[in-house]
Simulated assay, not measured.
Amino acid sequence: MNIDRIAGVAPILLGINIDHVATLRDARGGGHPDPLRAAMVAIEAGADNITAHLREDRRHIRDADIERLMAALTVPLNMEMAVTQEMLAIALKHRPHACCLVPERREELTTEGGLDVSAQMAAITPFVAELRAAGIQVAMFIDPDPEQIRASRKAGADAVELHTGTYCEAALGGDSITLQRELKRLVEGARLAAREGLEVHAGHGLDYENVAAVAAIPQIVELNIGHYLVGEALFVGLGESVARMRDIMDVTRAEVQDTANELRARGA
């Protein structure tokens, strides 16, 4: 292990995605369960920020949810959004702390992969510039691919969120070869992104069993998790599900810092 890569390990932040609280609400109509109430419970349990994806088809989060979250949250709001003029106008109106640009297809059940930044540079670069000019931090939700990481920097992004979905699917399926390959991609992607001057986040499909290996990557400073914790909340409550994830992440990060301290003491 190279001490230069882990010295001064930063604390890791937990962002909670509340989209699927809205999914449950919208299945019946009305206002229950309330995504804003869920956000407040998550914050009380240890969330550092709240993520909400305002999709073009409005299948869960609604425009009114973004307005209410902006008015009431005591932590930053991370608004996930497609690269469209409609979403740009909404973001510039509300000015959330951060916007994460994601690919979006109407027929998908959930985001299926990372944004192809390199293929859309001409459209994405001015889009990012407008958001940043408004004081909004911009992240790209991308696969841990060197081309996409470098393209994100060239497009002017502040951060990248590395897509962990393939890694999580391999963990769920017991595919150890793919699991190790994808974890290596995340490790190397996080290192490259940090060297490129990008803040490094990660998310998609993370759960209690697979999160520790990702939280142990020292360059990753934020994890965004939603569906699993909302599902787990059916059995233990949202506060408990978030608090347990917070604990796993913190314990893992403390172990990484202890390793860094030990290596430093040895002069490694």
Score class of each variant (00 low, 15 high):
196 E>S: 03
101 L>R: 11
170 A>M: 00
131 L>D: 03
194 A>I: 03
139 A>M: 15
143 D>H: 12
111 T>K: 06
117 V>R: 15
192 L>H: 10
135 G>N: 09
167 Y>M: 07
145 D>V: 02
96 P>T: 01
85 Q>V: 04
86 E>R: 07
103 P>N: 01
85 Q>N: 10
138 V>Y: 09
92 L>M: 01
135 G>C: 09
139 A>V: 10
120 Q>P: 06
86 E>T: 07
194 A>L: 10
127 F>N: 13
88 L>M: 09
120 Q>Y: 15
109 L>T: 10
182 E>T: 14
176 S>T: 13
137 Q>C: 11
97 H>L: 02
164 T>C: 15
162 L>Y: 05
167 Y>F: 13
178 T>M: 12
122 A>P: 01
102 V>K: 04
130 E>D: 14
91 A>F: 14
127 F>M: 11
126 P>V: 07
155 A>S: 01
102 V>F: 05
106 R>F: 14
84 T>R: 01
102 V>P: 04
145 D>R: 04
86 E>I: 10
120 Q>E: 14
175 D>P: 00
195 R>K: 11
98 A>D: 04
132 R>H: 13
86 E>D: 14
84 T>S: 15
179 L>P: 00
100 C>S: 15
85 Q>K: 08
162 L>E: 01
106 R>K: 12
96 P>G: 02
103 P>R: 01
112 E>I: 05
115 L>K: 07
90 I>S: 01
118 S>R: 12
190 A>R: 09
116 D>I: 04
197 G>F: 13
113 G>S: 03
151 A>I: 04
196 E>N: 04
120 Q>H: 15
134 A>G: 06
112 E>N: 03
98 A>N: 05
198 L>R: 11
105 R>D: 02
119 A>T: 04
112 E>Y: 09
139 A>S: 15
150 R>N: 13
144 P>I: 00
181 R>F: 02
83 V>N: 15
175 D>A: 05
149 I>R: 14
94 H>S: 00
121 M>P: 01
175 D>R: 00
84 T>N: 07
133 A>S: 04
183 L>V: 03
180 Q>L: 01
167 Y>C: 06
173 G>V: 11
129 A>S: 03
155 A>N: 02
153 R>F: 03
127 F>D: 06
143 D>W: 11
168 C>M: 06
123 A>R: 11
